[in-house]
Amino acid sequence: MSNQTGKISSTRAGLIEFIMFFTYAFFAVNWIAGSTLTKQIMDYFQLKSFASATFISNAITLAKIIGNFLAAGILNKLLPKKAIGLGSGLIVLGSLLAILAPQYWLFILGRFIMGFGGALYVVYFSPVVIHYFTPEKRPTINALNGVAYNFGGILAMIVVGPVIVWLNTWQYSMAFFAAISALLFVLWPFIGQDFELNRSSGATQAPYTVRQALKEKINWLLPFTYSGLLTFYIVLLNIFPISGATAISAKTLSTLVAVGGIIGSLLAIALSKVYFFRKPVIRLAGLVMTGSGILMFNTSNGVIASASALLIGVSMFLPVTSLMMIPQELPDMTPARLTTIMGLFWALSYIIETVIYFLIGFIIDRAGYATGLNLALVASVTLFLGSFLLPETGHKK
């Protein structure tokens, strides 16, 4: 694998990581701010049915899938500096369009564009990691990137409420966070740079197409493994709080999962310094996540429910670093090939999650929340099962 880090300024690498981390974190803040302001947005556009508001979440899911599929092609065409800048620019453009939209369909279009930019951004983390950082530093950087959205979520919990009170209207409140994203977008041309996409171990590799990627088993195993975690996470934050089965408030639940995510990411960084295998970490996290979910879904004790929520957050984010490292450590990996793999990873993960989430909703309508939540628990087992199917790319120290 190409490793030109010795020739690259560590300051430049750090600044690139800083810009990318906070761009994605404030994408999360802006997105969560829009979700928090749903009632005001519905009133502004005179929407009577709450179902109309669900078009927003459907738009982001569609944008993520399309953006993930197209990310590799855009990177190859524009090269890293412009491709990453495009992702950042779309986040800002989508935010502004949503804020200025005179009609609801334009608001949804703005959120779609913003989601598309975020989808590109999350894919471009990986090629940047393997180009700018040594193998020893990659687990740490992967852990930071993996928790960027969660960091934005915690930041949103702290600042969105006061900003709404301060600025009164949903447009001004969202514009405040969009301005921060715009500042990061303006800084990127001075910090970002292009790099070779198809070099590995000093040799130029042939381009790696989506068609080739779809023929390789690992590119199906990676999203299969992650899809259960993703589905469980979304169910936990959107369905479980309204199921009537919670022993703690929805806000407390979200906070504990988010804090657990930060702890899990810090543990992943610490663990990467002393343990170098990937599959056992994924396997243990899968067991703890599903086991904690069973406990939380079936307890009426607030303390047990809180501890379970915290453990779920830890076990959701602890294995992400190991999961991201597996494709990065495959033989002859290049930034271009990794971008294709990660684009498929995110796209297929969200497609699987969307199908399962629909089935959960379908079952809840006919058999109640308990049955639907049990299906979410069954889906979460893919993290544990995938740990037996994925290749072990780690090694002894």
Rank of each mutant, 00 (worst) to 15 (best):
M324C: 14
T354V: 05
T321P: 09
T299P: 07
L338K: 02
A270I: 11
L256V: 00
L344Q: 10
M333C: 09
I351P: 00
Q328Y: 11
E353L: 12
L256C: 01
V314F: 06
M316P: 00
L284C: 06
A270V: 09
L318F: 11
T354P: 02
S292M: 13
G286L: 00
P319M: 06
I282Q: 03
V257H: 01
I269C: 11
D332C: 04
K279G: 03
T299S: 08
V288I: 15
T252C: 01
A309Y: 08
I263F: 14
L323R: 04
F317Y: 15
L253F: 10
I282R: 05
L338D: 00
L330M: 15
L338C: 07
I341W: 12
L253H: 01
T339Y: 04
S249Y: 09
A258T: 03
K273C: 04
I341N: 04
I312Q: 02
F297N: 02
L284S: 04
M333A: 08
A347T: 02
V288C: 03
M333H: 10
T290L: 10
P331Y: 15
A268T: 07
F276Y: 15
I262A: 08
P335R: 09
P331Q: 12
S254L: 07
G260W: 00
A270D: 10
W346H: 09
V314H: 11
I282F: 14
L323S: 03
G293F: 05
G293V: 05
